[in-house]
Design a protein around this nucleic acid. Structure first.
Length: 767
DNA sequence: GATCTGGTCGTTTTT
DNA sequence: CGACCAGATC
């Protein structure tokens, strides 16, 4: 028991206090958006330790991202000091990797197994499809990957699927064969894909009772965040870990009483909100949370409804939207922060116009004391970043795209990581294949085939075949190239035990000449690649410094499992751009949700899926509830996709928000004759965009195809300039250096803008 | 074996 | 419109 005046309880409301102190064996915390869930979870962990109900090492907490795990650890440490040392706080995937590396010999894998990301997976499946000639059947890598993933999430493995194959469906037969080959290849390469990490852990716990007993005995308190987004395999994992240990499996060194009576099941706390379930497409099963009380009889349920994040206007709008999902438990978030500002709505003519609105609003937020890092822009699909980025660059809005084309997916990064993987795990066929001729050393497809054939016929790994390259009887040049590569790999492997990941990486970059080759290139893209390589080395150096005892394998694990949200950098002065999915669990003072249009949000693809519309609505709800003070909803009347301009209609979700909560803004009209858009579908037509304010010339944001370079243009505060789109204005200030010089201009009609001078379509006007 | 080019295809969402 | 791939050419 905690004393009533414990600092762990200070400032909590009654429900939160119950959630922190409950001693129930199973506890479900239904935590509405912004209800202080993270705080409750960290205090609950701290309370378990402070009240001596648990040692830190007996705690396993599962979070959705590595970043959330890191923050939770810090907060527990802030409450208790470094007793938090032995706790496991991590994502499902990281926890599984940790178990699997420790127990590798129980399932025939090396501790240094490779984790294949979706790119690796795709490449492998593609090769297998081609080998089988199954491409003509309409089997695409993505469809095969999706089907495999779906089955794995349901804990169906290749053997289990064998009896379910539709023999009269050639498609299914081919799929089965590809899947079987895929798993065989992964085993041969000592590799696991993302889904395998969970599945294999479940299988391990089920197959080896001694191992299961060991973890059940260790983890006495298990806490799972974002429980509404767990899939069946993750659910099964939790179930396995929360089973009691029978007396005969209690280890020798355990206390007498445990050996006599066995060890009871661990306590389980799950936190979730079915209104925020947005991952059904990757197997998340909302039933896991809905049926928690049935699965864990006697469970205590705590409902957190008070919101500490947003103003009441934002909550009213969000509540109104989500209430249109039937089949949900009624829940109404409330706040004591007052109504706050109205939500701002905007209808643009194009995505460029919409982007201009976002940029303008960001600028005016900055004037009222916001920092860039307080602001986020959300969208449904990654493709929507283009228009935003284009404009942000031109108008010098510092931004960062979270997720998107991930750093670790870039060609040069994948290449170098493949070296590291091949060094750590010589069996990794995919990695060895990738580096065979990267950088170019004259080992082409023919040589590769010969090498693979040699490996397969003699039953050795591709790495081992490389060491026997002279037996292939190829030309001296190719043979020499293979011998050189082999020597490099052998030398690096010999150093794995003593050298850090950063040292090995640097050695690879130097010895392969990878950087030198890029430096000699005249392609400007290659310059960026060199920078990426240096950044990778910096990441590795930082990792090695922060984790003294960790080596190459640990580094590779870390980079394999980074989540999009992990990239978030809240110290930096940048606006964050991300998908609505990535936004889950985050909060910002000011939020922009863009592209609130039919076909986009809800996305057209969701229309055909059962429950698709409801999930899109939850997605919109998640986005809205990220905002603390300012919420902006914007759309474009037309949107160019595939180079074709399509008209778009306002999202039906806008209809669901009470009119008085939104203050609609209006873009300048390019053509007064043009009918104004009405963000309303049927029912009462909402009196949306009102009459235009003053004449506003800021609509068009045409991409300038003329190569412009104003680097030499000298500008000073007070100068008058003319801009192709915005007309004339006065320069208020010039900041920045060289190509990054920025002019702050007050335009006579278009208002205040920031412009990247180098590329701005401006000329000086004589006063 | 490397590079170029024309054609195809595609956009949900992610660990 | 642009990324990516397969086949043709040097």
């Amino acid at each position: 028991m905690l004393p009533a005046d414990s600092p762990l309880l200070s400032g909590l409301n009654e429900a939160q206090e119950r959630a922190v102190t409950s001693e129930a064996d199973s506890l479900l915390i239904v935590a509405g958006a912004g209800s202080g869930k993270t705080s409750v979870l960290t205090r609950r962990i701290a309370a378990l330790i402070a009240s001596k109900r648990s040692w830190p090492s007996q705690i396993l907490a599962i979070t959705f991202t590595n970043k959330a795990a890191g923050e939770m650890r810090e907060r527990v440490e802030a409450l208790l000091g470094d007793v938090a040392e032995g706790m496991w706080i991590s994502t499902f995937h990281s926890a599984c990797v940790r178990i699997l590396r420790t127990e590798a010999d129980h399932f025939g894998y090396s501790k240094a197994f490779t984790i294949y990301d979706s790119g690796d997976q795709r490449a492998l499946i593609k090769r297998l499809i081609r080998d089988q000639g199954a491409d003509r059947l309409g089997l695409s890598p993505s469809s095969v990957a999706a089907k495999m993933s779906r089955l794995k999430n349901e804990l169906v493995d290749v053997d289990g699927y064998r009896s379910r194959v539709q023999e009269n469906d050639p498609n299914d037969v081919a799929f089965f064969q590809i899947w079987a080959d895929y798993q065989a290849e992964l085993l041969r390469s000592q590799a696991l894909d993302f889904d395998d990490l969970i599945v294999t852990t479940v299988q391990l716990l089920r197959a080896v009772p001694e191992v299961a007993a060991q973890y059940r005995r260790r983890f006495r308190h298990i806490l799972v965040d974002e429980y509404q987004d767990t899939n069946h395999a993750q659910y099964a994992l939790i179930r396995e870990l929360t089973k009691p240990v029978p007396p005969d499996l209690v280890p020798e060194q355990a206390p007498e009483e445990q050996k006599k009576k066995g060890i009871p099941a661990a306590s389980l706390t799950v936190v979730g909100d079915s209104d925020q379930s947005i991952y059904a497409f990757r197997g998340a099963d909302i039933r896991n949370i809905v049926e928690f009380e049935r699965d864990f009889p006697g469970a205590e349920v705590v409902l957190l409804e008070q919101n500490y994040r947003s103003t009441q206007n934002i909550l009213d709008a969000a509540n109104a939207v989500i209430s249109h999902n039937f089949d949900r438990k009624a829940k109404n978030l409330f706040s004591d922060q007052g109504a706050g500002d109205p939500i701002i709505g905007f209808t643009g003519y194009s995505q460029h116009d919409e982007a201009q609105f976002v940029a303008d609003e960001i600028l005016s937020l900055m004037d009222t004391g916001y920092r860039y890092s307080d602001i986020a822009v959300f969208y449904r699909t990654n493709a929507q970043t283009r228009a935003l980025e284009e404009l942000f660059i031109r108008q010098a809005v510092p931004y960062r795209v979270i997720g998107g084309t991930k750093f670790y997916e870039r060609l040069e990064i994948k290449d170098l990581l493949a070296y590291l993987q091949a060094i750590a795990n010589p069996a990794d066929t995919l990695a060895v294949r990738r580096i065979l001729n990267t950088p170019k050393r004259g080992i082409g497809p023919a040589t590769e085939s010969a090498l693979v054939a040699h490996a397969e016929s003699t039953g050795i790994t591709l790495s081992a075949a490389l060491a026997e390259a002279e037996q292939l009887g190829l030309g001296p040049k190719v043979t020499g190239a293979m011998a050189d590569l082999n020597a490099l790999l052998a030398e690096m492997r010999a150093s794995v035990e003593r050298a850090s990941a950063a040292d090995i990486l640097s050695a690879v970059v130097d010895r392969t000449g990878y950087r030198d080759i890029l430096n000699r290139s005249d392609d400007p893209q290659d310059l960026a690649r060199v920078e990426n390589i240096d950044e990778l080395i910096a990441v590795a150096t930082e990792f090695s410094r922060g984790n003294q005892e960790a080596g190459l394998v640990e580094f590779l694990t870390e980079v394999s499992l980074v989540a999009a949200a992990d990239e978030l950098d809240d110290s930096g002065g940048t606006v964050s751009l991300m998908t609505l999915h990535t936004a889950k669990g985050l909060e910002f003072d000011a939020v922009f949700i863009t592209g609130v249009e039919e076909e986009l949000l809800p996305h057209r693809m969701s229309a055909t899926e059962p429950g698709g519309l409801a999930e899109e609505r939850r997605l919109f709800y998640v986005g809205m509830t990220r905002a603390k003070k300012k919420l902006h909803l914007s759309l474009a009347m037309s949107r160019a996709t595939f180079g074709e301009v399509m008209m778009s209609a306002p999202s039906r979700f806008l209809q669901e928000i009470p009119e008085h909560l939104i203050d609609w803004r209006e873009s300048g009209l390019p053509d007064p004759a043009l009918e104004r858009p009405r963000p309303s579908l049927s029912r009462e037509p909402a009196p949306l965009p009102r009459a235009p304010r003053e004449k506003n010339t800021s609509w068009a944001n045409r991409v300038d195809t003329v190569v412009r370079d104003n680097s030499e243009l000298e500008l000073l505060a007070g100068d008058r300039i003319r801009h192709d789109d915005f007309g004339e204005g006065t320069v208020n200030a010039v900041t920045g250096q060289g190509p990054k010089r920025v002019a702050e201009v007050a335009f006579d009609e278009a208002g205040k803008k920031r412009l990247l001078i180098k590329i701005a379509p401006i000329t000086k006007v004589d006063a």
